Amino acid sequence: MVSLTAVRGAIYFPTHSHNHYQSWAAYDPQAAANDLDYAKRLNLNAVRVILSYHWWRENRRAFADAFDDFLLKAENRGIRVLPVLFESIGEQPTKARRRPTGDAPALKSPSGATIRRPWRWDGPRKFTRWVANRCIDPDVVLALEIMNEPGEYEPRVNFVREMLQVANQAAPVVPLTVGCKDIRLNTQFSDPELDVYQFHMNLPPTEKQARREIRDAVTFARAHGKPVWLTEWQRLRQSPRSNLRPNYASLAPIIGESALDGDFFWQLMLKPAYMRKQRKKGRINGLFHADGAVFSAADANALADSARTESRGETADRSVEWTERQRPPEEFDVGGGN
């Protein structure tokens, strides 16, 4: 079994991609190379990326070229990939909303109509097999995540159960996981069982609550004999900085000192918020500008330090000098302040 511990990662969307469809329909090999180099500077060893079922259906060859290129670039940098096959968050993926570039909302994948109609699942099954067969090298792919945040909605849960079986049959050696928001929802999936449990903790109010949530998740996962990853986190809600701006330094030390087997912060590249409602408020997330400058050197140092937890007791290497630029690019067109 591939190691599922000591994972230190980030969620990855290219700078100008607002959703998974844009990430792959407008894939830029040079931008991907640069961005993965930034991840390496942070001592990260994994990235979590949402794939695009709809772009795969529209242009399988282009998707294959982009996905294979991304896997190769990650492998060359010692970074493993956690591909997410399907997404429950966002708006319905109508043709009008599937735009390769420009402002666009987060998109569900597949559509709600497909999720509710099992007789439409042949396409997702083929996509799942196709991805699983490309992800059998444990040095390249960390695990397969079937869906981000399926929740407890019965049609989605049944869809995920079916795709877990398909993936397990296609590539039985590949670890499987689901992007559960709540740690207890991992137990909805038992045939096959998940190889690793996930939970999300984006904006805990206080340090005390963050520590408690992590402790409870680790205890729950250990009771079921599973490693556990925190696959979405951002910052403490209560901190001196504007609540619409990144502040990874408020939460990174807590995560780095925890007993978690892995974590992925939201997100590597500086971008407007994923959800359109938050985007309109002016929220931004991320660390790196496209040119490699960081939004916050304090955040960069905190993230790099927390990624060294496998070398506990050693002083973190602070030889990296960060170019800091604490303002969003003009093209983000985000409003708000506090």
Rank of each mutant, 00 (worst) to 15 (best):
P272A: 00
G335Y: 03
K208I: 12
D317C: 08
K226A: 09
E314N: 13
G286F: 05
G225L: 02
F295Y: 11
P227Y: 05
R211A: 11
L203I: 08
A259D: 11
P329Y: 04
A273P: 08
T309Y: 12
E330Q: 15
G292S: 04
N202A: 12
E257K: 02
A307R: 09
P205K: 14
G335M: 08
E213I: 11
L303Y: 04
L268N: 01
V320G: 07
W233C: 02
G336L: 06
E331T: 00
V228D: 06
Q278A: 13
Q326M: 06
A217Q: 02
R312I: 15
V320N: 10
A293M: 08
F288T: 05
R235N: 11
V218K: 09
L270V: 02
A259H: 14
Q326G: 09
V294I: 00
G225I: 08
E310A: 11
I254K: 04
E213K: 13
G292R: 13
A249G: 05
F332V: 09
A221K: 00
S239T: 13
A290C: 12
P246K: 00
P246Y: 00
R318I: 02
D261I: 11
M269L: 06
A223V: 09
S296C: 06
Q238A: 11
A304K: 08
F220V: 09
D333F: 15
P272I: 07
A252V: 08
